[in-house]
Design a protein around this nucleic acid. Structure first.
Lengths: 249, 249
DNA sequence: CTCGCGATAAATGTCAGACATTTTGCGCTG
DNA sequence: CAGCGCAAAATGTCTGACATTTATCGCGAG
C-alpha cells in the first residue's frame, strides 16, 4: 500500500502518529511489508522529517514497526504488537474494522479475566465504587428502550465494565480496565447489533444487574459467575470457546 | 535531586532513556518534583539536545513524566505510570529496590491472575508448551540443592511461570507474561531469601510440580488450585490478603 | 562461470543552530 | 490595588548537514 489514502496533515506530532497508526491497524500495510520512508511521508504530509521521526518512534515503541539503519522500516508481526501499551489503546478508539483475530483474542481474554476481577471487586469495593457501578447501571437501564439512545447506552455499558476493574482496587487491573476501554467499546457496539429488538438488550441488562448485586453483597463467587454470564452470549457469537476460554481453532 | 549521580554518557538514545528511567524508578526524584531541563541534561551527559528529547519522549510515553511547553518537565504520580508498558518492563530489570507498594500490587495481581492462566493452560497447552514447562521444571529441580546455583534456579523459576502464560495460547496473556518477567524475577529473588535451608525451596519445587502435572493432565481446576498454592507463601510473607487477593490495608 | 570483494547508493541515526509557541512571573500603568 | 503587557524560560518544530549501517551492483580473481 502507499500513502495515497493520507491527505495533507494538520496537527502535532501525536496527531501524525495516530493517523499512521490507525492506517496501519486498519490494514493498509501487512506484516512484513516495507513501511514508507521518512522523506516520502514528510513530503506527502508536508511536515518536517523531524516530526515524522517522532511519530515513527511512537509506532516503533508500540511494537508496530521495526526500524534498522540502512535497511528501512518494516511492519512487525501481529504477535509482536504491544497490545497492552496505553498508546495503542488510544489509537484503537473508534477504529471501524479492527482485525477479527484481535477481537477474538481480546474477548477470550476478557472472558477469562473479568470473572476474577468481579470477584476481587466483590470483596474490595467501597462506597464510591458501588456508586460508580450503580450510576452506570441506571444509565444503561434508562437508555435500554430507545434505539435512538444506542450511543449513550454503549457509553454506560463501557463505564460499567470499567467500574468493575476500578473496584478491584489493584493498580494493574485498574490500568488494564482503562486500556481495554476501546476494545470493550468495539465489542459492545458489535455485539448489540445482531439482536436489538428481541431478547438481546433485556437479557444483557438483567445480567449486568446480577453482577452489580453480587458485588454489592460482597459475594465473590456469585459475582464471578454473573460476570461470566454477561460475556457468554457475545463469546458464543464470536466463536470463542466458552468451555476453555480459548479461541476455538 | 539533581543530575550529580549520572556520570558522562555512553551509548545511544535508548541507553540514555534507560539510565534516566532507572534513576527515576530508583527514587532519585519524587512525584510532583520538577525534572531537569533538556539543556541541563544535554550539558551534563555531553549529548545533543535531540537525543535528550528522544529519551524524555520515551519516559513521557511510559507515563513517568509530564511535559508542557513553557512550564517544564514534572514527575507524574505513581498511579499514572504505565506499568503494563513493555518499555517499563525493560527498565525494571535488575532494579535493586523497586517501590514496595509496587511489589505488593504486582503480587496481588499475579495471585489473582495466575490461577486463571494456569486453568487456560491446562486446556490449551500443546506438546511444545509442555516441553517448555518440563524443561524449566527439570532445571529447577537440578539447581535446587546447591545454594551456589541460586541465580540459575531463579532463571528456571521465572521461565516456568512465563511458560504458563505462553501455554494459555492467548495473545494478551502471553504479552502479560513477558512483561511481568522482571517483576516475577524480583519477587522470586526476594521470596527465596528468608527461608533457604528449611522448607522453602523443597516445598516450592513440589508445588511447581503440582502445577505442571495438572496442566499435563488437562485438569483446569486442579491447575488453578496448584497455581494458587505456589504463590500462597510469598503472598502471606508480603502481607497480601490471600482471601481477597487484594492488599491488606 | 562462480565466488568474493569493494565502491556506491539508500535509508535511518545524530548533531547543531535557529525559530515558534506556551507558560510564568514581574513590572508598569491606569 | 487591579489589570495589562512585556520579557524570560522552557518545550516544540523546522532546516540542513553529516555519520552510520545495510543492501546492491559490478568487477576481478580463481
Amino acid at each position: 500500500m502507499s500513502l495515497e489514502a493520507l491527505g495533507p496533515h494538520q496537527g502535532d506530532a501525536d496527531a501524525l502518529a495516530r493517523r499512521l497508526a490507525r492506517a496501519l491497524l486498519g490494514g493498509d500495510w501487512q506484516p512484513g511489508d516495507a513501511f514508507p520512508k521518512e522523506l516520502d511521508i514528510a513530503a506527502h504530509c508536508a511536515v518536517s522529517r523531524n516530526l515524522v521521526r517522532n511519530a515513527l518512534a511512537s509506532l516503533t515503541a508500540a511494537g508496530l514497526l521495526e526500524r534498522t539503519a540502512g535497511r528501512g522500516t518494516r511492519v512487525r508481526e501481529v504477535g509482536d504488537w504491544h497490545l497492552l501499551d496505553p498508546q495503542m489503546s488510544d489509537w484503537l478508539v473508534g477504529l471501524a474494522h479492527p482485525q477479527p483475530q484481535l477481537v477474538r483474542e481480546l474477548l477470550a481474554f476478557r472472558y477469562s479475566a473479568e470473572p476474577v476481577v468481579a470477584e476481587l471487586a466483590a470483596r474490595a469495593a467501597g462506597p464510591d465504587d458501588l456508586a460508580r457501578l450503580e450510576a452506570a447501571f441506571r444509565g444503561m437501564a434508562a437508555t435500554a428502550d430507545a434505539s435512538q439512545q444506542a450511543a449513550q447506552h454503549v457509553e454506560y455499558d463501557v463505564a460499567f465494565h470499567e467500574a468493575i476493574y476500578e473496584a478491584s482496587h489493584n493498580l494493574i487491573w485498574r490500568q488494564m480496565g482503562h486500556l481495554l476501554r476501546p476494545s470493550i467499546l468495539a465489542l459492545v457496539q458489535h455485539s448489540q447489533r445482531p439482536a436489538r429488538g428481541d431478547d438481546g438488550l433485556g437479557d444483557s441488562l438483567e445480567r449486568h444487574g446480577a453482577v452489580l448485586e453480587a458485588i454489592r453483597d460482597g459475594d465473590g463467587p456469585r459475582a464471578a459467575r454473573a460476570a461470566r454470564e454477561v460475556l457468554g452470549r457475545t463469546a458464543r457469537d464470536l466463536g470463542v470457546d466458552t468451555e476453555t476460554g480459548a479461541r476455538a481453532d
